[in-house]
């Protein structure tokens, strides 16, 4: 086992949603079917024990990708492979079922992700029971207590209901539930965007500690660059369903290559920039149903050449050292490494 390869990898992952009106309306109003491409040709790898972050604004398809990677949503094209098992291939049901226990998810909204009618102990015990990880009720109870303590709550909290907890505590409960099946890979969909800053830091620190102690691999979905900078080893930037740039953390923040990454970094509010006005941002995110031709970013891009950028979708260009960019300007050498 010299090179086990990446733990998680996606190849050409894509998902198209049919957002047409009902059949009868289409017939009467003589409309075509309407499709939304939420994700298109998304390719990345996550090594074991690392954190990969997908960053993007609304319409970027980041949540769709997260759902496909945990198996909640079937891709329209491409593959997801976790530890050598293809999540959606025909005929490997046993492997896929075994894999399911090893993949878990932490959700964005700590108020909607816990069933309000269940006691916290039952919520956390459910995965333990479902996967048959503990034999009897007593062992399950003990395991639930351990899990609660592992996320910084008390074993006694198991008898309470979710509404008795604050947002941050609920997110801890969600983490405990995710850990209950002893997963190796956790997809975190905006885990702290609903939390306050002081509580967010508690949850982020907890997630990092757990990663270190349990050797977890994370896929983190976020719109917040500062959170991503704190958590991720590798970062992928999404724009309207396509991955425009992937790079190691330091490289991405210090020397972003894709014009959209640069814009995003400029737009992020900074704690030290008193009275600054971010002037570099132009235009708005287009409608994902009606995406611009060629490179989706070309209408907002200052490096738009007016021909190739408009007419041809840029391919993923491997720049080495874990970095890849999809941009004609970078490929042609028009956009250099230094920041403008």
């Amino acid at each position: 086992m010299s090179d086990p390869g990446p733990f998680v990898s996606t190849r050409g992952l894509g998902r198209v949603f049919d957002v047409s009106k009902p059949w009868l309306n289409r017939m009467i109003e003589r409309e075509e079917k309407v499709f939304l491409t939420a994700a298109e040709n998304v390719t990345f790898d996550i090594p074991r024990g690392e954190t990969f972050a997908l960053v993007g604004e609304s319409g970027s398809g980041k949540s769709t990708i997260a759902k496909m990677i945990v198996g909640l949503l079937r891709p329209s094209s491409g593959t997801v492979t976790v530890d050598g098992v293809d999540l959606f291939a025909q005929g490997d049901l046993a492997g896929q079922t075994a894999l399911r226990r090893r993949i878990q998810m932490i959700f964005q909204d700590p108020y909607a992700s816990l069933n309000p009618r269940w006691r916290v102990g039952d919520i956390i015990a459910e995965p333990v029971r479902a996967f048959g990880l503990e034999a009897d009720a007593r062992a399950i109870k003990r395991r639930v207590g351990e899990l609660l303590e592992q996320v910084g709550l008390s074993a006694l909290d198991g008898i309470k209901y979710p509404h008795e907890f604050s947002g941050g505590q609920r997110q801890r409960i969600c983490i405990a539930r995710a850990l209950a099946s002893k997963p190796e890979f956790i997809v975190c969909d905006e885990p702290t965007s609903a939390l306050d800053v002081s509580v967010q830091s508690q949850v982020l620190n907890l997630m990092r500690d757990l990663q270190r102690d349990l050797g977890l691999t994370y896929l983190m979905i976020s719109h917040d660059l500062s959170v991503v900078r704190y958590m991720a080893d590798h970062i992928g930037v999404l724009y309207l369903g396509r991955l425009v740039e992937t790079a190691p953390r330091a490289a991405l923040f210090d020397a972003p290559r894709h014009p959209y990454t640069r814009m995003l970094l400029d737009a992020a509010p900074r704690l030290d920039a008193f009275g600054r006005t971010a002037e570099t941002v132009v235009g708005e995110i287009p409608d994902p149903i009606d995406r611009p031709s060629g490179c989706h970013f070309h209408p907002r891009c200052t490096h738009n050449d007016g021909t190739r950028c408009v007419g041809e979708a840029p391919e993923r260009l491997d720049l080495g050292r874990g970095r890849a960019v999809a941009c004609h300007g970078v490929e042609e050498g028009r956009i250099g490494e230094g920041r403008p």
Binding site: D196, S201, N205, S226
Partner: peptide, 24 residues
């Protein structure tokens, strides 16, 4: 003080975030 130190920044290094115990 706690709020400022627990705010992650796009500039900061990846050191451990400060946390204020408890919640509002």
């Amino acid at each position: 003080v706690g709020l400022m130190r627990s705010t992650p920044s796009t500039l900061g290094a990846g050191g451990r975030l400060h946390q204020i115990p408890g919640s509002m």
